[in-house]
């Protein structure tokens, strides 16, 4: 069963060759997809599943082209796949300037798909499977270019609610603008260093006035008020989003909204809505993160509004 000891002479540098050639492929394929895709896209830099799925699969297949010379169990390849993933992530950090949290988020995707590539390589690199190899490469190229030239515009909306024990007239005072939030974040990604919202400022409360949402690293969203119904609805469009190496740089946040609803007991139901478009794919993976992070941004801002409004009520209407 165990065949670790059987090696052919060509296996001497097989591991190094597998790592080197697969990473050269990754850099070239990633650059090609990145350039072609962003010639085609008008809404900012998009990184799609050609980069995040097909490139790691290709890396795994190419690596396996060399690693298969060492006759090992499939499970013995795992440390090599992990090593190759780490190298690929370091290259991403170097060439793309990605932030640490982005790299943490992307690593399970890269590792999983690189292992898929190794599995594909495990089954197609047999002498009697030349047709299968040719078909695989052909299918791979079709998928790559179809994705690169496809439109990517996955949009989503996240909505959250919070009850505030203060009337809408008091809550309204803190919806458009609020002072610096000094409370330590309790969401794990914020604690790890993902920028979190700390302050909002406005030039006025009327439609057309400017609003700024400032994050903990100084990144600022420039916004314009598009709807302002006192004690009821406040909506703003994001007109300029900061360039950020972390995940907020990979989501196009387009609109935000607060809705204040008076409850029977005089308190307020505050609803926070955000609309965004993803700039990273596959959506089935990144949208989970985008929803979770957007939700945590909502909760932090709405909780800050809640603290301010309820404190206001206690001080002025004890």
């Amino acid at each position: 069963m165990e065949k670790n000891v059987v090696q052919d002479p060509g296996s001497r540098y097989a591991i190094v060759k597998g790592i080197v050639y697969s990473n050269i492929f990754a850099v070239v394929a990633f650059a090609l997809a990145y350039l072609l895709m962003n010639l085609n896209e008008a809404g900012g830099i998009v990184i799609s599943w050609a980069e995040f799925i097909l490139v790691p699969i290709g890396m795994g297949v190419i690596a396996m082209r060399f690693w298969r010379r060492k006759q090992q169990r499939l499970s013995a390849r795992l440390p090599l796949v992990v090593l190759n993933t780490v190298i690929a992530i370091m290259l991403s950090a170097f060439f793309m300037g990605e932030g640490v949290i982005c790299l943490v988020i992307v690593s399970p995707l890269l590792l999983g798909f690189m292992f898929v590539g190794v599995l594909i390589g495990h089954y197609i690199f047999h002498d009697d499977k030349k047709m299968l190899r040719v078909s695989t490469i052909f299918l791979y190229a079709i998928l790559f270019f179809v994705d690169v030239f496809s439109f990517h515009g996955h949009a989503n909306m996240v909505s959250d609610e919070m009850i505030i024990h203060a009337p809408p007239s008091v809550v309204w005072k803190y919806v458009a603008a609020h002072p610096v939030n000094t409370r330590e974040p309790d969401y794990w990604l914020f604690s790890m260093g993902l920028p979190c919202p700390v302050q909002s400022t406005v030039s006025g409360h009327a439609v057309g006035d400017e609003r700024k949402c400032i994050f903990s690293n100084g990144a600022t969203f420039d916004e314009v008020i598009v709807q302002s119904v006192q004690d009821s609805v406040f909506t703003f469009d994001i007109v300029k989003q900061p360039e950020d190496p972390e995940i907020i740089g990979h989501i196009n946040i387009e609109r935000g909204q607060f809705i204040l609803t008076r409850r029977a007991d005089g308190s307020t139901l505050l609803t926070g809505n955000s609309w965004y478009t993803l700039k990273v794919y596959p959506a089935w993976y990144y949208d989970l993160w985008a929803v979770d992070i957007t939700r945590q941004v909502h909760i932090r801002v709405m909780d800050h509004i809640k603290q301010l409004a309820e404190h206001d009520v206690q001080v002025h209407h004890p």
Binding site: G112, F113, P282
Partner: peptide, 20 residues
Amino acid sequence: LKHVPFFALWFDAAAMIWNM
């Protein structure tokens, strides 16, 4: 979810790595 493109392959590879 198995009909979501590539999800099943990724999930199975992740499960295999987890077991390893």
